[in-house]
Each structure stands twice: as C-alpha cells, then as structure tokens.
Computed example of a mutant assay.
Amino acid sequence: MKKQRLKAVALTTMLSAGALMGSVAMADQTLDAVLQAGQAKTTLAQDSQKRIDRLAQETDDLAQQFKQQNKLIDDLRVFNAQMEKQVAKQLVVVQELEQSIEKVTVIERQIQPLIFRMLDGLEQFVNLDKPFSLEERQAQIAMLRANQDRADISVSEKFRQVLEAYKIESAYGSTISAYKTTLSLDGQDREVSILRVGRISLMYQTTDAQASGYWDVAQKSWVSLDSSYNAPILKGLKIARDQATKDIMTMPIQAPEAAQ
C-alpha cells in the first residue's frame, strides 16, 4: 500500500515536472514572440520617424520655396510697375518723334535749296580768293555738287559735308602752308614752291631760291619780287614745312581795298 502511494507521488512529480518544462518552453516561445513583435514595432517606429523627418524636411523646403516665390512675385510686381512707367514715357517720346518726323520732312524740303545756295557761295568765294590749292578746292566743290544727286546720302549728311567744307575754308585764314606746283613765269613753266600765310599773302619761289614773287589781287596775276625777298620767303617755306622754328617773317602784303 505504501509502495503504491510512493509510485503515485513519483508519477505526480514527473507529471508536474513535465508540465513545468512545457510551461517554460511555451513561455520562451511567448517571450520570443513578444521580443519579435517589439522589434518589429521599433523598426516600424523608426521607419515612421524617418518618413516624418523626410516629410518635415520636404515641408520646410516647400515653405522656403514658397517664400522665395512670394518674394520673386513681389519683385516682379515692382519691376512691372516701373516698366509700365517707362513704357508710358516712351509712348510720349514716340508721339514727339512722330511729330518731329513730320517737321523734318518740311525742313528737308527747305534745306536742299539752302545747300545749293551755300555751294554757289562757296564756289564764288574760291574763284575770287587767292589761287592756292585751287585744283584741290575746286575738286572738293565738284564732289559736293555730285553728292546732291545721290540717293544713298541723307540730306543731313549732305548738309554736314557742306558745313565741313566751309570750316576748311575758314581754317585757311589762320594757318600757314607750303607745297610745290608749276607756274608759267616769263612765258615758261617753272617748278616753284608756294608759301601761303593765312589769306594775307601768297608767294612763290623757284626751286633754286633765285626768283620769288607774290599773287597780286588787283592784277589777278603773279608779280615778281626783288631778290631781297628771297631769303625771307625761303625762311617762311622752312617754317611752313616744320624745318625751322617759328619766327617773324618779312612778307609782301597788299593794302586792303574797300569792298565794291
């Protein structure tokens, strides 16, 4: 009887130990499942946080872009307002130009006859003036007359060219120059040097510096000078050619005549 009781206790103990071991195994499995679930939640939380951080960064970027775009829009509004003012002023200028163009058409019709009168006056002046650089000056006038028939030159340019010719003629009165040419002296052609001192005196001297003369306005011809003028005229030629320093020169000068 006692043995049966001991067997029963032993069997109960073994059953209890088996149950305990089964419980421990189940507990281990449950703990693993809990840990895995926790790890999964942690991973999900980390992924969620990364998405949140990324969305937050994208939101900040969009906010910055929005601010920049708003600033750009404000700048464009200011720029457009300024452009509108400029366009309004330019429209006024265009209207003024249109009116000026109408006036220019009238002025052009008046300028062309004026140019012809100026050319006539210039040609007459050259013919009455002392005959220095005569061929060059007459060629200039002929060129200006020919330009009046050219359609590729504007009226304003034609007028400018005539004014430039007047300036050149005016400059002759305050300059000194020397050049070589051929004159008919005593019935024979002689190579001479011409000395022009403003419009005060126009003289010549042969290349051997042995004969000199001047242009007589009254006689409209060359008149010989005595040999005492040879040295002063030679000196004047050197000064005009920058071969000598400027100095006082003795020149034949005709007394002015009253205008007719």
Rank of each mutant, 00 (worst) to 15 (best):
M1A: 14
A8M: 12
A8N: 06
V9I: 15
L11Y: 08
S16A: 13
S23Q: 12
L31E: 15
D32P: 05
A33K: 15
A33T: 13
V34K: 13
Q36W: 02
G38P: 09
S48E: 07
I52H: 06
E58A: 04
N70I: 05
Q82S: 07
E84C: 02
Q86S: 12
A88N: 06
Q90A: 09
V92T: 04
Q95E: 13
L97F: 12
K103C: 00
K103H: 15
V104C: 10
I107V: 12
I111N: 14
L119P: 05
Q124L: 13
D129I: 15
F132W: 03
L134K: 01
E136Y: 08
R137Q: 06
A142I: 10
S154N: 06
E157W: 07
K158G: 03
K158H: 05
F159V: 09
R160K: 06
E164N: 05
S177G: 08
T181M: 02
R190L: 14
V192L: 01
L195D: 01
I200N: 00
T206N: 06
T206G: 00
T207N: 03
T207Y: 03
A211D: 06
A211L: 07
S212F: 05
G213P: 04
V223I: 14
S224L: 04
D226K: 03
S227V: 07
L234A: 11
L237H: 01
I239N: 09
D242P: 02
A244C: 06
T245Y: 04
K246L: 00
P252D: 03
Q254C: 07
Q260M: 10
